[in-house]
Amino acid sequence: MVYLSLTGVLFVLGLHGLFTARNLLRRLLSLNILTTSVFLLFVVMARLAEPLDNVPHAIVLTGIVITVSTTAVALALVVRIAGRMREEDVGAAADTRGDVE
């Protein structure tokens, strides 16, 4: 039960961060927290099942691999955007809404 509520807390925390953070990296981290909450939910489901269920573990493992890849892509994009904003016009980048701090 504790873990189930933790799932909810992490989910809300991640959502909140994603919508309020201005910093690109913070938004990415919020998204990762969101994903982690879903993984936690899967693990809790596995623990609650009678007998213990191992399919959610496989799912979470796959999910972690996917999250690593998406995070890598996102980071590559952040590096490009940040680099471009540093060397070029900061004004044109204002519509990204996330800014480098």
Binding site: F11, R27, L34, F42, A93
Partner: peptide, 27 residues
């Protein structure tokens, strides 16, 4: 690139919410 970033956040948020639903359904 900025458009790609926004799309990335939107689409990843979409799939994470979807996966949350899948987890509940599996449970």
């Amino acid at each position: 690139q900025a458009a790609a970033w926004r799309y990335l956040l939107a689409t990843l948020l979409g799939s994470t919410i979807y996966l949350f639903g899948v987890a509940l359904l599996y449970g």
